[in-house]
Design a binder for these strands. Sequence first.
DNA 1: GCATGTGAATAGATTCACAGCG
DNA 2: CGCTGTGAATCTATTCACATGC
Lengths: 218, 218
Amino acid sequence: MAGSITPRRIPEATVARLPVYLRALFEVRDQQQATISSERLAELAGVNAAKVRKDLSYLGSYGTRGVGYDVEYLVFQISRELGLTQDWPVLIVGVGNLGHALANYRGFLVRGFRVVALVDADPAKVGERIGELAVQHLDDLPAIAAERHPAIGIIATPAAAAQEVADRLVAAGITSILNFAPAVVAVPEGVTLRKVDLSIELQILSFYQQRQAESASA
Amino acid sequence: MAGSITPRRIPEATVARLPVYLRALFEVRDQQQATISSERLAELAGVNAAKVRKDLSYLGSYGTRGVGYDVEYLVFQISRELGLTQDWPVLIVGVGNLGHALANYRGFLVRGFRVVALVDADPAKVGERIGELAVQHLDDLPAIAAERHPAIGIIATPAAAAQEVADRLVAAGITSILNFAPAVVAVPEGVTLRKVDLSIELQILSFYQQRQAESASA
DNA sequence: GCATGTGAATAGATTCACAGCG
DNA sequence: CGCTGTGAATCTATTCACATGC
């Protein structure tokens, strides 16, 4: 576990694109392509080539001038950088509409993540089986955390419960949280929080949609 | 429909925060607060006060020095700017796991959006009723579009189908797309595309989680 | 006096353009 | 010769700090 000092500082924007590159590289690998140019990778990832090269340069100089990048090697390096060479136990809080869908979501099967527990505050839901798992009560979070060591907590509760759930996750020692509830959630320093908010995305689309409508009628 | 030239250019980052402010303002309004300071709004939105003031200044000078912003007026101005004073018809493509959850999602009930059609490429799913709507076939998209005029299309299909679905949505005249499929999708200029990608979010969390683990053991 | 509104300063991300190297 | 790697230039976003005006 020790060793490996963190030498390079990778920009946030780059970190957010690495998974996109990785996905493209898996496809390319499936097609038996041994190397790939920044230009081709850029095309597959929907960005431009300069960005690909700059992004990859933060990981180190893994390309060969005049040739491109070795696909297999790049897959390995990006996977390692993203921490996907190990398994992260995931806990889902809230098994309503969305929590259900998430619990069944095959995307988790992508290597690196495994749902290890489902919890809900509603006693009526406790015991319900979803796939391999039975829903447990939110109050049992400390015990569940101690036993299963979830690294990532997913909040799939109504907005009103989100902050309290986040507080409990943090108290249970979870330092990475993905919030699906439509609410602003605050976490202490040292905890990483990301959010996925459908209603915000729709409102952003609405803004640009309106602009289009306006300019069309101008 | 005509008139209203577009005078101010609102930065993308600001557009993405307006829905967050709006949500906070609804809460504040429910608590009978008539005015709010940038500082308080910042707190509720999880950003800093300077950002709130700068963001709101792009919409115009709607605050009163020494006092703050009128909550009701600000709600109206932001709603108008985001295009939420009208109803946007939404079409969902793909009624699998996620599509189902989205179709039932109460977040749509938030004013401004209404699901007007559900389509799927699988004939076995056609006819299935979800809430008020019956699932229709993807091939009927042109007719559905002509009749219901969806403004926003949501892609909730497997990754492999995403690009083709996007192409069909664009062909049907839809210019705003929200993609939930874990795939890069390209759209022509003039079409707004946003994506929500669970597996990318998990991988980003994994990156920072690994950093934490590393620095903890350093 | 107090909180907004905004130029100026800073930080961060993207793109350019080309030197460097296989 | 071709494609990477990267400084420099540009663009975008954030933050500072204070003049402005209620």
